[in-house]
Design a binder for these strands. Sequence first.
DNA 1: CCGATAGCAATATAGACGTACGGTTATAGC
DNA 2: GCTATAACCGTACGTCTATATTGCTATCGG
Lengths: 210, 210
Amino acid sequence: MPRVADHDARHGQITDAVQRLIVRHGLTAVTVARTAAEAGMSVGLVQHYFTAKDEMLLATFTRVNGRFTARVDELVNRGEAEGHTIADMLRQALAELMPLNDARRAEFLVRLAFADQAAHSARLAAVQRETLVGIRSRVAQAIGNGTVCGEVAQGIDAADQALQIVAFTEGLALHTHIDPDGTSKPAVLAALDDQLGRVFTGTCRRAQLG
Amino acid sequence: MPRVADHDARHGQITDAVQRLIVRHGLTAVTVARTAAEAGMSVGLVQHYFTAKDEMLLATFTRVNGRFTARVDELVNRGEAEGHTIADMLRQALAELMPLNDARRAEFLVRLAFADQAAHSARLAAVQRETLVGIRSRVAQAIGNGTVCGEVAQGIDAADQALQIVAFTEGLALHTHIDPDGTSKPAVLAALDDQLGRVFTGTCRRAQLG
DNA sequence: CCGATAGCAATATAGACGTACGGTTATAGC
DNA sequence: GCTATAACCGTACGTCTATATTGCTATCGG
């Protein structure tokens, strides 16, 4: 058989290039020629790995969303392992949704750029929706755990509160982006705290792990 | 002088056409040729009223945002005139930010479509930011009135709460759009109620107008 | 009533874009 | 070491786009 290449690595090179272009100049400025240049390869090679531009963009969106949820997952797991309170863990995980540093801003801009496209593409919309419900269900589970543990009062609907908290967080993220001056980083984190404090009103009855 | 035309009307025809195209097929699908066809006029005439496509898009964004804040304003004024409680008035006004019917959905999609572009255009960003701070300051003022009146407890920072409430509302709007099945209309309105209920905890001490 | 001028249409033009395609290079298997 | 085949490049092609240009038409001021 002929020479082989690391397909995953190449896909990553290309989608990373797309992401950088989106961050710097917006989705409109993403062309396959520019992407090839940014990725340091030829136009033909990009075509070799993505039959069409749509596929390339879908792959980029999927990858970014995957990394996004993976980060949230990791923070949840680490929080549990290190025995933090559920509220603390959520505080950190939700802060990941906000464009407060370059990496998060990059992810945020990509998700924002595809928001319009997703409204008119079933496949993009599916990725977007799955990411959202994934985050939401994780938060709901955390709240459920908090109810069992004692951090959350009985009678609180975990799904409802998860919906509200995630919506609030994403709205805050959007506002941070639109008006960074009127929405300072500490103010944003304080607002998030405030919101979480409305649900996490108690303390855990059971001993923490770790 | 030669024959005259209603410039405002023509601008409106064109930007309305742009809005319809965005709603139906996304910002990417907006070309001056298609816009002209949608508006029922020639390409040359569109050029006659907008020197460049950028101007056309900026005008569309400005108009939509203007209508948007105007609707909120009107609801606030009407609410005051009819002697509703401030909480009720805000409930109605903020529901205007949500894509719960065709007209609001159209506005929402336009604001969403420009979100990416605005990240890379100072003029679009300015319109976007001004709209946001406009809404926010109106809400802050309502909360301030609520404090004086007695609907809101003393010691509540109106600006902080306005930030949170508007962020929450916009996040909810986004989620309604992304996952309409998981975010039913009554559930959304209930969530909004819940959020407002956390700030508007009292009843007005003074007699209502009207 | 007439000419200056804005309103309006049709077409021309130059460029950018996605993608198809032909060709070259390198390597895994025999 | 030959060959099949994947990796990779460069370019050509057809389409679409924004915009410039040219010309016609209607109407207001004098």
